[in-house]
């Protein structure tokens, strides 16, 4: 379970162009949740997701993960959390374009010191589970937007994380691909993975079981 208490994030602090991206945001995420965070551009959605993923540090407030305050955790331990507890899907996929799908999916495991043979096995198994084993040997830059998004999700789940944090996962997809992706998310959620999805898409928001709205850095449910 994740709990955020009174989280604040300020960019360009003490400068003329100072921006408060998050204002005393409090949030509880339970295991198995399927949450959508919506809001206009620049409202703080992505900042919230990055703080949850330990990619950025809040300027105030506390971040509790399973009861442990991880706000001040050293970078190395935060990196370990990203490598084990979280799966992260970025809006523009965050894939290594010139590398193979297989290697991209292996990344979290290789970084986590899993042997390449085992990592490869796990990556193939994940691709099969998602119904896209034929993509394994292809280069990422040969894939369509929908295929890239699936690969990004495959990479996010290959190391069996507890939570997947996804930033606009359907942003680059047409409606057919969006529907397919949502079915995949439902399937994974039913298998026990918690999802927190930042989205503009009302279809995705309606699909989720919890909806949070953020405007000007303030979160409401």
């Amino acid at each position: 379970m994740i709990r955020l208490n009174q989280i604040e994030k300020i960019y360009q602090k003490a400068k003329p162009n100072e921006v408060t991206a998050l204002k005393k945001v409090s949030l509880t995420i339970h295991d198995g949740d399927l949450i959508a965070i919506t809001g206009p551009s620049g409202s703080g959605k992505t900042t919230l997701l990055h703080i949850l993923a330990c990619l950025e540090k809040p300027d105030a407030g506390e971040y509790l993960l399973n009861g442990q305050n991880i706000t001040e955790l050293p970078d190395r331990q935060k990196a370990d959390l990203r490598n084990s507890y979280f799966g992260i899907v970025l809006q523009d996929f965050g894939l290594l374009e010139e590398e193979s799908v297989l290697l991209n999916i292996c990344l979290p495991l290789l970084i986590g010191k899993t042997r390449y043979k085992e990592a490869k096995k796990a990556a193939i198994s994940t691709l099969e589970h998602m119904g896209i084993p034929s993509l394994a040997s292809k280069k990422v830059n040969q894939l369509s937007g929908g295929q890239k998004q699936r690969v990004a999700i495959a990479r996010a789940i290959v190391h069996k994380p507890q939570i997947i944090l996804a930033d606009e996962p359907t942003g680059a997809l047409d409606s057919a691909n969006t529907e397919e992706l949502l079915q995949l998310i439902r399937k994974l959620n039913e298998e026990g993975i918690t999802f927190l999805i930042v989205t503009h898409n009302p279809i995705v928001a309606d699909f989720c079981t919890r909806q949070l709205h953020i405007i000007d850095g303030k979160l409401s449910e």
Partner: peptide, 14 residues
């Protein structure tokens, strides 16, 4: 970008 992707996936600074 490659560095950031690796770090997003759990690689630490050192």
């Amino acid at each position: 970008k490659v560095f950031s992707i690796l770090m997003i996936n759990g690689m630490y600074f050192s």
